[in-house]
Nucleic acid binder design. Structure first.
Length: 806
RNA sequence: GGGCGCGUAGCUCAGUUGGUUAGAGCAUCUGUCUUACAAACAGAGGGUCAGAGGUUCGAGUCCUCUCGCGCCCACCA
């Protein structure tokens, strides 16, 4: 055999096998191929420049499963796509190109987005290949491409026809920075310091009514004052009017149980809109609308002399004004939490505006039930899903007053306002450039106003099963592929992507979108903190590929139970690399001791030595454990079992024990050598296949270098999952191996304690044991004597097992 | 305030339905050039399983409470 390096070098092998897999279509999906289909609704990553370590962590998890299923003989549909429309993409382009969408012509900005995506997407996807994803990369969808626009619009029309989507003017969560409506799921909390201001409202009897507020700038929006119905202090003023300071208008004092008597003065102003309670009161008591903030977060004419100011500045000016007029009694510094927009961290407002909504509030119970039909891994993630649904307060607002997104295929009749939908045959369309082909069905009008809004990015990604399936199936074939087998994703988007997909699937197909979901955790830094750019504790996966290789990274990612967060640790990744070196060297050893073009299938299995039967039994147990674990999506248990077998059983013990049989040149023990050769070869080959889902590059390199002969599968990943050989099935032998290892350990300890070399000859070893144990040891006597270099092996009859060494 | 997860060796984590003396890797210490691997190998030390109570012949594991950490949600006047 030619000289082969003692070290395994991922930087050399990984790019080589990437090319090989692509060239040989190893992961290409053929819908017509035989075998049960296993379909995966791969998360389309949001195009963001570079893959981050969290991606690397959760995408490898799903790849473990995809590769396992493939080796089990399933026809695995593992598609790939990118999510690249909506606000996230707009923000990325604004950052990369240093532009502001709001200051550009609409079409220019859209063009720039498309150009930018073309520039950055290929590099972005490259990292997903580098990490060893076994997706079919030959067909990729992008959520902004023509086909996705078509499907997204088609499904919108479906929602409209099924009356699951409606347009309404109502208070909605609004981001003044992005100048668009957003959904509840896009909110984050932020702790902030502010002042709780005690402000004087005048009562008709000239007495003062103190109102506490953090938002004095909304005074001009005040439409009522509320007190608690049981509050004795205010009993006789309910129904009377209070005068709003500075602005002078009078508003009714009303009683409602939502008021907290203990908070502030126990009297609260209701503005349209300061918070969610204001919205509830507005609706319940049919209060008038008083808008003092515009879509950009600036004061309106309603705020009179404060008009045109930013809310923040208006607050300062109003406070000054109140102070001068002696209408500000006290300012208390408090910390409260407020809602910010997750994309830009701006404090959100509630604004009245016309938006498209998908009905979800009337479906809460149904969606929770659907969640129960899906199998969750881990199970507790379902609770998060249910909690989120129970807490929902708004229907899902899907319209965005933005630019780079999928347009609504809708016009409005200029005369009567009726909605006119585009014809499905014409999709995808942009209502801004296309014109309807018919007249208004309601009034016969022929003038139309196009919808300028675009859809929220989740409105498209929530039909990802269909986007993925359409890469390989016709429109008419999609329905029969639902539910798909698996949705893999991380836990942070249970309330968005996962939830919305269940909703959409129910509306379009009256079915769950997938039968199982697997939810990954996050990567934290070595101290368990969230990784963030501001903390400077992020790790680029690209630097890990370079330093340790993708396999080492994958090995690390397999080390934590599914659903749990993991602390980043370079030492752990180092350990993965060490494992590969060991695997490489163990293989080298085996191959050095095999004849050329060895065919393990030829050996008569009746001639297997007892010691060899032990390791084969261990292998059988391992295959069973690994299979069971993978079926439960518990890849970390599988990995751990494989690792322990390899290191503790195979290399530390079995190989050491049979070495001498292999070294023997004289054919007096030809059978012993052949049995060891057969065992080593078949154990290692099985082990390699068990490891292939975790470390696809290294196992491919080893397979191609040492195992593959002309008639074998062209890749380890096409070799199939190892199976237990019925002829060798004997689990009882595991117990025999335990006895053997115990004796070996005793001899090693004896030598180590005396500082002796492991080669040192032992004059006499005496084993005390019962007759049954003696029989077992006797069977393996020659191996035992050889590994310990024992001159005389003696037995003593005793119920208690012990080893005496002289 | 509610929900979920976590708390096991110095560190990172396993520990299946309760069942001998609680495991692994990293780190530490001692030794070994041993014809796969010295980035290796052999051995050793190291734990009141967060705390308290309970169920049980038996609890890291089941129940109750308390404490600590993390995440999600609510509160936002």
């Amino acid at each position: 055999m030619k000289e082969i390096s003692k070290h395994y070098d991922p930087s050399e092998t990984e790019p080589k096998w990437l090319k090989f897999w692509e060239k040989n279509n190893v992961y290409k999906f053929n819908p017509k191929k035989d075998g049960e289909i296993f379909s995966i609704d791969t998360p389309p990553p949001t195009v963001s420049g570079k893959m981050h370590i969290g991606h690397a962590y959760s995408y490898t998890h799903e790849d473990f499963i995809a590769r396992y299923q493939k080796m089990r003989g399933k026809n695995v549909l593992f598609p790939f796509g990118t999510d690249d429309n909506g606000l996230p993409t707009e923000r990325l382009v604004e950052k990369l190109k240093k532009v502001r969408a709001s200051r550009m012509k609409r079409q220019d900005f859209i063009d720039l987005c498309n150009i930018t995506l073309k520039e950055i997407t290929p590099d972005f996807i490259e990292d997903w290949k580098k990490i060893g994803m076994s997706c079919d990369f030959s067909k990729i969808y992008s959520t902004i491409d023509d086909n996705c626009r078509r499907i997204s619009q088609k499904f919108f029309i479906d929602l409209y026809r099924k009356q699951k989507v409606y347009r309404q003017e109502a208070p909605v969560v609004w981001c003044p920075h992005c100048q668009t409506a957003i959904a509840q799921a896009e909110l984050e909390d932020k702790e902030a310091e502010t002042f709780f201001n005690d402000i004087v409202f005048k009562l008709p009897n000239k007495k003062n009514l103190t109102i506490s507020t953090t938002r004095p700038e909304l005074l001009s929006s005040c439409v009522a004052v509320f007190v608690h119905p049981d509050d004795k202090r205010y009993k006789n003023i309910v129904g009377k009017k209070a005068q709003v300071p500075i602005f002078g208008n009078r508003v009714e004092i009303m009683a409602d149980k939502k008021v907290d008597m203990k908070k502030g003065s126990g009297a609260v102003m209701c503005c349209t809109f300061g918070d969610k309670t204001d919205v509830e009161w507005f609706k319940e008591y049919k209060l008038p609308l008083a808008v003092s903030l515009d879509k950009a977060g600036m004061m309106t004419e309603k705020a009179k002399k404060f008009a045109g100011l930013l809310a923040k500045d208006a607050r300062t000016r109003i406070i000054e004004d109140l102070k001068r007029k002696k209408l500000l009694l006290e300012q208390k510094k408090i910390t409260h939490s407020l809602n910010i927009h997750e994309r830009c961290k701006t404090e959100v407002e509630i604004l009245n505006s016309e938006q498209w909504y998908v009905k979800i509030l009337d479906q809460k119970k149904k969606i929770i039930e659907l969640g129960e039909e899906i199998k969750w891994h881990p199970e507790f993630m379902r609770t998060r899903f249910e909690n989120w649904i129970r807490g929902l307060n708004w229907d899902w607002c899907i319209s965005r007053q933005r630019f780079f997104g999928i347009p609504f295929p809708v016009w409005y009749c200029a005369k009567c306002g009726a909605v006119l939908l585009a014809d499905e045959k014409d999709l995808p369309i942009d209502p801004l450039s296309a014109k309807p082909k018919e007249e208004c069905k309601k009034c016969g009008g022929s003038k139309f106003i196009p919808e300028r809004d675009v859809m929220d990015t989740w409105a498209t990604s929530s039909i990802s099963p269909e986007l993925a399936l359409q890469l390989f199936y016709k429109d008419s074939e999609v329905k029969k592929m639902i539910p798909m087998n698996l949705r893999p994703q991380a836990h942070d988007i249970i309330s968005t992507w996962l939830f919305y997909t269940v909703v959409r699937s129910q509306y379009h197909f009256e079915n769950i979108p997938w039968s199982e979901v697997m939810i990954s955790g996050h990567v934290l830094d070595s101290q368990g903190r969230k990784m963030s750019k501001s903390l400077g504790n992020t790790i680029a996966p690209q630097s890990i590929f370079e330093k340790f290789g993708a396999d080492a990274l994958r090995f690390w990612a397999a080390g934590r139970t599914l659903g749990q967060n993991i602390n980043f640790s370079e030492e752990e990744i180092q350990a993965g690399k060490k494992f590969l070196t060991k695997l490489w060297n163990a293989t080298r050893f085996v191959m050095m001791n095999l004849p050329k073009s060895y065919d393990y299938r030829k050996l008569d299995t009746k001639k297997i030595y007892p010691t060899d039967k032990w390791i084969l039994a261990e292998l059988q147990a391992l295959i069973e454990t690994a299979t069971k674990s993978f079926e439960k999506y518990d890849y970390s248990s599988a990995k751990m079992a494989i690792e322990k077998f390899f290191w503790l059983k195979l290399t530390d013990n079995y190989i050491e024990i049979v070495k001498n049989r292999l070294y023997e040149e004289i054919p007096k023990n030809k059978k012993g050598r052949e049995s060891a050769q057969f065992t080593l070869y078949s154990v290692l080959f099985a082990l390699l296949r068990l490891l292939a889902p975790f470390v696809p590059f290294a196992t491919e390199e080893i397979y191609q270098t040492f195992f593959k002969s002309a008639k074998d599968a062209k890749s380890i990943h096409l070799c199939g999952w190892p199976e237990v050989d019925e002829r060798l099935f004997d689990k009882e032998k595991i117990k025999n191996g335990k006895i053997l290892i115990e004796i070996v350990a005793a001899m090693r300890k004896h030598k180590a304690e005396r500082g002796l070399s492991m080669k040192t000859e032992l004059e006499k070893v005496e084993i005390s044991c019962d007759n049954a144990t003696k029989k077992i040891i006797k069977e393996m006597e020659s191996d035992l004597k050889a590994v310990g270099n024992i001159k005389i092996l003696k037995f003593a009859n005793s119920k208690k097992f012990s080893v005496k060494i002289a």
